[in-house]
Write a protein that binds this DNA or RNA. Structure first.
Length: 290
DNA sequence: ACCCAGGCGGGCG
DNA sequence: CGCCCGCATGGG
């Protein structure tokens, strides 16, 4: 293995990128080259995927220091044993189909603040516009970084201190609409929090409750943040697609409450419900449609 | 024109 | 609790 390569058993960058995770909203992915540039608050990841899904090779270039390898392993949770997780969540024909179809899709682990901003913006919104709003915010309040690989300028993700002090109008100008005040509220929370490690130590139910105390963060967004910002794989975000999919696939279209769906997911997929969610979500959107 | 988008807060019974 | 409404904005 070369020093700028990582070998991974099962990794599909396309599905991981497209499936509505934070990288979907502010990564730059070149589908033809299977190449990703991802500019975070503190780091820029530059990688290209070679090989097959089963035996993938991540080729990366170091941007700011030698820790790029460990950043990538952490970000894409490459230590997750997908075979083992698939065995656990493959409870029925639908999950089996989703796993086959989206084999190698990873659940990513992202910076908590970046994840929070992304999913606050996501509410009552669509993928394309979420991406556009996040991009506008990054371009307005982030700092430029030159990428010598493709000779283009990128912007770092603005930190909470900066966004806690912007005016509502400035975010409205980014297209954030009624979510603008929620973004500022969340920024104040992440600015004021003394110790993010405290959040890390909370158990999932307490973490979710803490997140929901922020104005603009409800059940679904809190679960997205718990899952993709804090790595709580038991979190099961329920949006319109998941609701539709679960009702259709498992309950003959019977109308279910959010509470009932949480119970169903917990009983069925337990500590890996979040993984199952990511597969059902993408499967439901692409296969079932509306 | 009309409808919808990875929801949430608030008000009501 | 459950239900219903308004909410900014751009794309189909």
């Amino acid at each position: 293995m070369k020093k700028n390569e990582i070998l991974v058993n099962k990794f599909n960058l396309k599905y991981t990128f497209e499936s509505g995770q934070p990288i979907t909203f502010f990564g730059e992915y070149d589908i033809n080259k299977n190449k990703l540039i991802y500019t975070s608050r503190i780091t820029q990841i530059n990688l290209r995927l070679k090989g097959s899904t089963k035996n993938a090779i991540i080729e990366f270039s170091s941007i700011n220091g030698r820790r790029t390898r460990s950043e990538i392993i952490k970000k894409f949770r490459l230590k997750d044993n997908l075979e083992r997780i698939y065995d656990i969540i493959n409870t029925d024909e639908h999950m089996d189909g989703a796993i086959r179809k989206y084999n190698g899709m990873r659940v990513t682990l992202n910076d908590p603040w970046e994840t929070t901003l992304c999913f606050v913006v996501s509410q009552f919104n669509n993928m394309k516009r979420i991406r556009s709003i996040i991009k506008n915010i990054i371009h307005s309040f982030g700092s430029p970084v030159y990428n010598k690989d493709d000779k283009l300028m990128y912007y770092t993700f603005p930190n909470a201190e900066i966004l806690s002090e912007v005016k509502v109008k400035e975010l409205m100008d980014c297209g954030a609409g009624f979510r603008s005040k929620y973004i500022i509220e969340a920024a104040k929370y992440y600015r004021d929090i003394i110790n993010l490690k405290r959040m890390d130590k909370l158990k999932y139910p307490e973490l979710k409750e803490e997140l929901m105390s922020i104005e603009g963060i409800g059940d679904k967004v809190a679960d997205c943040i718990a899952l993709m910002g804090y790595g709580r794989l038991e979190a099961f975000p329920i949006d319109v697609w998941i609701k539709r999919s679960i009702e259709r696939l498992y309950f003959k279209n019977r109308n279910l409450s959010i509470k009932e769906i949480h119970k169903f997911a917990e009983d069925r997929w337990g500590n890996f419900a979040g993984f199952a969610q990511q597969y059902v979500f993408w499967y439901g959107r692409n296969i079932i449609g509306r």
